[in-house]
Computed example of a mutant assay.
Amino acid sequence: MFAEPEFWVAVAFVILMGVFAWVGVHRTVLKALDHRAERIKAELDDARRLKEEAAKVLAEYKARHASAEREAQEIVTNARAEAERIASEAKAKMEDFVARRTKTAESKIALAEAQALADVRAAAAEAAVAAASTVLSQSVKGPVADDLLVKGIAEVRQKLN
């Protein structure tokens, strides 16, 4: 028994444990473990607090993102409505412009027709006066013919113009 090495290892171990107990190593080890446990607990509390803050920040950013999305959607909707309004105004202005141009063109055409009709009447009157003067000058002679011719020409001119 005394010759076996396991016995002496056991004796040395018991003596070592006794010395450790007498010196108070167990208190130091327990104190170190307690400090480590407190440090780990503090780190866990900090981690938990940081996690909660991160969750709050994440929720805040999600809310901001949703708000920005809604605002962007409103901007797009308003822009589309504004574009439709501008397009309808442009269409109305174009239709008004076309109507005015058509009316102006029709007025010019009517004026040109009236002028052409007046020119035709004037030409017809001139032709009638010339024909009447030719016929009267050949059939009627003398001062009575001249007086009649002048009155007739004036009367035809007045009625045709």
Score class of each variant (00 low, 15 high):
Met1Tyr: 07
Phe2Asn: 09
Ala3Thr: 14
Glu4Trp: 00
Glu4Gly: 05
Glu4Ala: 06
Glu4Pro: 15
Pro5Ile: 05
Pro5Met: 08
Glu6Leu: 13
Glu6Lys: 11
Trp8Asp: 14
Trp8Asn: 05
Val9Glu: 03
Ala10Phe: 10
Ala10Gln: 15
Ala12Lys: 02
Ala12His: 03
Phe13Thr: 15
Phe13Tyr: 12
Ile15Asp: 00
Gly18Ile: 09
Val23Ser: 00
Val23Pro: 02
Gly24Leu: 10
Val25Asp: 00
His26Asn: 04
His26Gly: 01
His26Gln: 02
Thr28Lys: 13
Val29Phe: 11
Val29Ile: 11
Lys31Ile: 01
Ala32Trp: 15
Ala32Pro: 07
Leu33Ser: 00
Ala37Ser: 06
Arg39Phe: 14
Ile40Asn: 01
Ile40Met: 07
Lys41Cys: 03
Ala42Gln: 04
Glu43Lys: 02
Glu43Leu: 03
Glu43Ile: 03
Leu44Ser: 08
Leu44Asp: 11
Asp45Ile: 13
Asp46Cys: 09
Lys51Leu: 07
Lys51Ile: 01
Glu53Cys: 02
Ala55Trp: 08
Ala55Gly: 06
Ala55Ser: 06
Val57Gln: 10
Val57Ile: 13
Val57His: 12
Glu60Ala: 00
Tyr61His: 11
Lys62Leu: 07
Lys62Glu: 09
Ala63Pro: 06
Ala63Asp: 00
Arg64Asp: 15
His65Cys: 06
Ala66Met: 11
Ser67Met: 13
Arg70Ile: 13
Glu71Thr: 12
Ala72Asp: 11
Ala72Ser: 12
Glu74Leu: 14
Glu74Asn: 09
Ile75Asp: 00
Val76Arg: 04
Thr77Leu: 15
Asn78Met: 15
Asn78Phe: 08
Ala79Trp: 03
Arg80Ser: 03
Arg80Ile: 02
Glu82Arg: 08
Ala83His: 09
Ala83Asp: 14
Ala83Thr: 12
Glu84Pro: 14
Ala87Ser: 03
Ser88Val: 08
Lys91Val: 08
Ala92Ile: 08
Ala92Pro: 00
Met94Ile: 14
Met94Gly: 09
Met94Cys: 07
Glu95Arg: 06
Phe97Gln: 11
Val98Arg: 12
Val98Glu: 09
Val98Ser: 08
Ala99Val: 12
Arg100Met: 04
Arg100Tyr: 05
Arg100Trp: 05
Arg101Phe: 02
Ile109Tyr: 07
Ala110Asn: 15
Ala112Cys: 06
Glu113Cys: 04
Gln115His: 11
Gln115Phe: 14
Ala116Ile: 11
Ala116Thr: 12
Ala118Asn: 07
Ala118Ser: 09
Asp119Leu: 14
Val120Asp: 11
Val120Thr: 10
Arg121Lys: 09
Ala122Phe: 10
Ala122Asp: 13
Ala123Asn: 09
Ala128Tyr: 08
Val129Asp: 08
Ala130Thr: 09
Ala131Cys: 05
Ala131His: 06
Ala131Phe: 02
Leu136Thr: 03
Gln138Pro: 06
Gln138Lys: 15
Lys141Cys: 03
Gly142Trp: 06
Pro143Phe: 10
Pro143Thr: 04
Ala145Gly: 13
Asp147Cys: 07
Leu148Tyr: 12
Leu148Asp: 10
Leu149Trp: 00
Leu149Glu: 02
Val150Pro: 12
Lys151Asp: 08
Lys151Phe: 09
Ile153Thr: 01
Ile153Glu: 14
Ile153Ala: 04
Glu155Phe: 01
Lys159Ala: 01
Lys159Cys: 01
Leu160Ile: 13
Leu160Tyr: 11
Asn161Ser: 07
